[in-house]
C-alpha cells in the first residue's frame, strides 16, 4: 500500500465509524440547535415583540431583521464557531481521538497495515470532512430559515453570492478544524477524552477571556492575547462580517485582519496536527 492509499484507506475507515457514531450526531444536533436559537429564534422574538432582550437592546429593528435574511445566511452559519461552536468541535476532536485509547481500538487499528502516521492523517482528514459536512448543513438550514423569515416578513429575497458563501464557509471550516484539532491533540496527550474535554472547555470559554482581561491591565501581554487561538478564530469571523463587540456574538473580534487571522489559524492547525502525529508515532501502546 502506498502512503496515499494508506491515508485514503484510513480516511474511509474512520468515516464509516464516525458516521455511525451517535456522539457525532448529538454534537451536530447541539450545534445546530444553538445556531438556530441564537441566530433566529431569539432575534425573531425580539424583532416581532419589540421587547428588549439582551441582544435586542440598542440594535435597530432593521439591522436585527437583516441578520435573519438569506443574504446573511453564510455569516449566520459560522459566526458562533469561534466560541461555543469551537467548544463543541473541541469536544468532538477530544472524544473522537481520545476515546480510542479507552476502547482499545487504536491498538487494533495500528495492527491493520497502514502506518501510524497514515492512520492519524486519515482520522484527522475524516474529522475535517465531518466538519465540512456540519458547516454545509448549518448553512443549508440557515438558508432555509432565513428564506422563511423573509417570506413571513414580506421582504424581497436577496440570495447570498458565491463570493460571500465561499469565504464564510471556508473560514468556518478553518475555525472549526483548528478547535477540533486542538481537542484531538489534548485527547491524544491525555490518552482519553475526559481531560481533553474539560481542559478544552475551560480554555475556550474562560481562560482566553481572563487573559484578555489581564492584558488590559498589564502592558505587553496583549502581544500574547492577540495571537491566541480564540483571538485568531474570532478575528477571522469578525473579518468575514460577523457582528462582534459588546452587543454582538460572543467570541467575535476585529483584533487581527482577515489575512493574519487566517494564517495564524493555519499555523495552529498545522502545529496541533503535527504534535498529535509525532506523539502517536512515538508512543508505546501498552
Amino acid at each position: 500500500m502506498t502512503t496515499v492509499n494508506a491515508v485514503l484507506a484510513s480516511t474511509r475507515a474512520e468515516l464509516l465509524r464516525l458516521r455511525k457514531w451517535p456522539a457525532l450526531w448529538v454534537m451536530t444536533g447541539a450545534w445546530l440547535l444553538l445556531n438556530v436559537m441564537f441566530v433566529y429564534v431569539f432575534n425573531y422574538l425580539s424583532y416581532t415583540t419589540g421587547s428588549t432582550t439582551p441582544r435586542g437592546e440598542g440594535i435597530p429593528k432593521e439591522a436585527l431583521l437583516a441578520e435573519m435574511l438569506p443574504a446573511a445566511a453564510p455569516i449566520s452559519a459560522v459566526q458562533g464557531l469561534p466560541m461555543f461552536g469551537g467548544a463543541i468541535m473541541m469536544i468532538l476532536g477530544a472524544l473522537a481521538i481520545g476515546s480510542g485509547y479507552g476502547w482499545g481500538t487504536w491498538k487494533t487499528v495500528f495492527t491493520q497495515g497502514p502506518s501510524r502516521l497514515a492512520t492519524t492523517a486519515g482520522s484527522l482528514v475524516a474529522l475535517v470532512l465531518a466538519i465540512v459536512a456540519i458547516v454545509a448543513l448549518t448553512f443549508v438550514l440557515d438558508l432555509g430559515l432565513s428564506t422563511l423569515v423573509a417570506a413571513t416578513e414580506s421582504q424581497t429575497i436577496v440570495w447570498p453570492g458565491l463570493g460571500d458563501i465561499a469565504p464564510a464557509l471556508g473560514g468556518g471550516v478553518l475555525i472549526a478544524s483548528m478547535w477540533m484539532l486542538g481537542g484531538a491533540l489534548i485527547g491524544t496527550l491525555a490518552k482519553g477524552p475526559a481531560l481533553g474535554v474539560g481542559l478544552g472547555l475551560v480554555w475556550v470559554l474562560a481562560v482566553e477571556n481572563l487573559l484578555r482581561g489581564v492584558a488590559n491591565l498589564l502592558g505587553g501581554m496583549d502581544v500574547v492575547t492577540d495571537h491566541l487561538p480564540g483571538t485568531a478564530a474570532g478575528s477571522l469571523a469578525g473579518g468575514l462580517g460577523a457582528g462582534g463587540g459588546t452587543d454582538g456574538t460572543p467570541g467575535v473580534f476585529t483584533t487581527l485582519d482577515t489575512a493574519s487571522a487566517s494564517w495564524l489559524l493555519v499555523a495552529y492547525l498545522v502545529v496541533f496536527a503535527g504534535i498529535t502525529a509525532v506523539v502517536v508515532r512515538r508512543r508505546d501502546l501498552a
Binding site: 500500500m1 465509524r17 482499545g104 481500538t105 491498538k107 487494533t108 495500528f110 495492527t111 491493520q112
Partner: peptide, 17 residues
C-alpha cells in the same frame, strides 16, 4: 502489519458499532 493478524490483550472495538 498488513500480513499479520493480531488479537492482543483483549479485543479493542468501537462499542457503539
Amino acid at each position: 502489519n498488513g500480513r499479520v493478524g493480531a488479537l492482543v490483550e483483549g479485543p479493542g472495538f468501537y462499542p457503539y458499532l
